[in-house]
């Protein structure tokens, strides 16, 4: 095909036919060759994108009923740990009442939970410092000074909204895309 493209612009000139018509024909042929090569390349490139079986697991549904008040569970979503925690009234209040000026990355709690479901906080359980998985889902885990999560690697601490309160982590824990299917079921992804 590349040869063809080269042929299209080749310097040899035949003796017959109008120059314009001939050049146009060669241009069309060369463009066709380029389109053909592009069309061959796309399936190969696309074959490296996530396949259907991978995409089928790209969202997980989680039942919230077994999660006791004050504790959390870890579910795996796209190979990452997801924390789903059932917050107590006290924890919600602490998260809502904090002064923005005290936060490393200021963000109100209301932006980190779904409206009407403030008792549920869903986070990607990966410390924003160097990628360790923080502790704190079980009430018996160390949860740090702010009652959220504590990263055992370098001592970063997060509050009950998953916001970083003590370095070295620079950012709050990320929130995965999720939605409530019903009051007791969420779909992550």
């Amino acid at each position: 095909m590349a040869e063809l493209a080269a042929a299209g612009t080749g310097g040899h000139h035949g003796a017959h036919g109008g120059d314009g018509r001939r050049d146009f024909l060669r241009l069309i042929t060369a463009s066709g060759a380029v389109i053909g090569v592009g069309a061959i390349a796309w399936p190969l490139i696309d074959s490296m994108n996530p396949s259907k079986d991978v995409l089928a697991l790209s969202s997980v549904e989680t039942d919230l009923t077994p999660i006791e008040l004050g504790s959390g569970i870890t579910v795996v979503w796209r190979g990452k740990p997801i924390f789903v925690r059932h917050r107590t009234e006290k924890e919600i209040k602490e998260a809502e009442d904090v002064q923005m000026s005290q936060l490393i990355e200021p963000q109100p709690d209301s932006e980190r939970v779904k409206a009407g479901h403030a008792q549920w906080i869903v986070l990607i359980g990966i410390c924003t410092h160097l990628g360790c998985v923080p502790l704190g889902n079980k009430p018996t885990d160390p949860r740090g000074e702010w009652g959220g999560w504590f990263c055992p690697c370098h001592g970063s601490q997060y509050d009950t909204s998953g916001r970083v309160r003590h370095g070295p982590a620079p950012l709050n824990l990320y929130i995965p895309p999720y939605a409530f299917e019903s009051n007791t079921k969420i779909k992550i992804g």
């Binding site: 399936p43 190969l44 074959s47 396949s51 259907k52 079986d53 991978v54």
Partner: peptide, 13 residues
């Protein structure tokens, strides 16, 4: 068979 069914354009390749 996974190539044929799940990989994008796997059947073609």
């Amino acid at each position: 068979q996974r190539i044929m069914r799940d990989v994008n354009y796997g059947w073609l390749i």
